[in-house]
C-alpha cells in the first residue's frame, strides 16, 4: 500500500458527482433566465412598435395597441404608492422609534409578515368583496389600487425599517441632546438618512404592482380603452379624474386575456414591454441600494 503519500490527490468519485450537480444546477438557473428573456424578446420585439405603444386596440381603426393598458397601469401605480408609502413609512417609524419591544410590536411584525405571505388571489377575493361590493366601488381602478395597497405595504414597511436601523444612535441622541423634539429629529435627521431605503422599498413595490395580475383581475377589471377625449380641456380633465371609478385592465391583465384568446403575438409584445420595465426597475433598485450601503 503506497497510497499514504500527501502528494497524490485522492480521487473521490462522489465529490466529482456532487460538484457536477452543483454546476448543473447553477447552469439550469442561468439558462432558464436567458432562455425566458431571450425567447420573449425574440417572439415579441417585432410587435413592439411606436403605434403598438401609442394606440388602443380597435377593430374600426384596425389598430392593435396597449396605450389604454399603459395608462391604467400608471394610474394604479400612482394611486397605490400615494396611499401605501405614507402608511408604510409611518408604520416603520412607529416600530423603530416609538414602540417599546413587546407584545404589540411582535403582533404588528407578525401581521406584516403574514400580509406579505398571503397569495394575490386571496387579496383579489378580499378586494372584490370588500372594496368592490361592501364599499360599492365595483370593478374600478380605485378598487384595484386599494387592494394592491395592502399587498405592497409590507415591502415598504420592511425596507424603511431596515434603513432606519442603519442610522446610528448617535444621530438620534445628538439631535435630541441639542433640544430638538422627537418629530423634528425624525423629520430632519432620520428620514433623510433613511431615504435610499425608502426609495428601494418604493421601487420594489412598483415592480410588484407592474407584475401583479391575480389580485387585479377581479378588482380593477379588464377595460383596455381610453376615455373618449373631446376638445374641451375641463371636460377631458374631468374624464381623466372619473376614470379612477371605472374599470381598467393593466398590462398583465391584457397579456392574460390575449393569451387566453390565443393571440400570442400581442401577448409576447406585452411580455416584452413588461420585461423591459422589470429590467429598468431592477437597475434602479441596484443604484439606490448601493447608495444606502455607502451612506
Amino acid at each position: 500500500m503506497n497510497s499514504g503519500t500527501l502528494m497524490v490527490k485522492k480521487r473521490r468519485p462522489v465529490d466529482m458527482l456532487q460538484k457536477a450537480a452543483i454546476y448543473v444546477s447553477a447552469f439550469i438557473a442561468v439558462a432558464l433566465l436567458i432562455g425566458i428573456i431571450g425567447y420573449v424578446f425574440y417572439k415579441g420585439f417585432r410587435t413592439v412598435t411606436w403605434s403598438f405603444l401609442t394606440t388602443v386596440t380597435s377593430a374600426q381603426k384596425q389598430t392593435t395597441g396597449i396605450l389604454g393598458n399603459l395608462v391604467n397601469t400608471l394610474y394604479i401605480i400612482v394611486i397605490t404608492l400615494l396611499i401605501a408609502t405614507p402608511i408604510g413609512v409611518g408604520s416603520a417609524i412607529y416600530l423603530n422609534e416609538y414602540a417599546k419591544p413587546g407584545k404589540i410590536v411582535s403582533l404588528i411584525e407578525f401581521t406584516t409578515e403574514t400580509l406579505s405571505g398571503i397569495p394575490s388571489v386571496i387579496f383579489g377575493l378580499f378586494g372584490m368583496i370588500f372594496f368592490g361590493e361592501t364599499l360599492g366601488l365595483s370593478y374600478s381602478i380605485l378598487t384595484g389600487s386599494f387592494t394592491l395597497t395592502l399587498m405592497v405595504l409590507p415591502l415598504i414597511t420592511r425596507n424603511t425599517q431596515e434603513a432606519l436601523r442603519t442610522v446610528p444612535d448617535s444621530y438620534r441622541s445628538g439631535a435630541l441632546g441639542m433640544g430638538a423634539t422627537k418629530w423634528y429629529m425624525i423629520r430632519t435627521i432620520l428620514l433623510p438618512s433613511a431615504m435610499p431605503g425608502i426609495v428601494t422599498g418604493i421601487i420594489l413595490a412598483l415592480g410588484r404592482i407592474v407584475g401583479e395580475s391575480a389580485a387585479l383581475l377581479f378588482t380593477a377589471g379588464s377595460d383596455y380603452r381610453l376615455p373618449r377625449f373631446t376638445d374641451s380641456i375641463a371636460d377631458n380633465l374631468g374624464k381623466l379624474g372619473s376614470k379612477v371609478f371605472e374599470s381598467g385592465g393593466t398590462l398583465t391583465i391584457q397579456l392574460y386575456l390575449q393569451m387566453q384568446n390565443g393571440k400570442y403575438d400581442t401577448a409576447f409584445g406585452i411580455g416584452c414591454v413588461l420585461l423591459i420595465i422589470v429590467f429598468i426597475l431592477n437597475l434602479l433598485t441596484k443604484l439606490t441600494a448601493g447608495k444606502l450601503k455607502k451612506g
Binding site: 438557473a29 432558464l32 433566465l33 425566458i36 428573456i37 425567447y39 420573449v40 415592480g207 407592474v210 407584475g211 401583479e212 395580475s213 391575480a214 398583465t252 397579456l255 392574460y256 393569451m259 400570442y264 401577448a267 409576447f268 411580455g271 413588461l274 420585461l275 422589470v278 429590467f279 426597475l281 431592477n282
Partner: peptide, 13 residues
C-alpha cells in the same frame, strides 16, 4: 431578475 418576471409571462411561455 428571475424573481422579477411577472407570473403571466411564465404562464405565456
Amino acid at each position: 431578475l428571475l424573481a422579477g418576471i411577472p407570473s403571466v409571462v411564465y404562464g405565456l411561455l
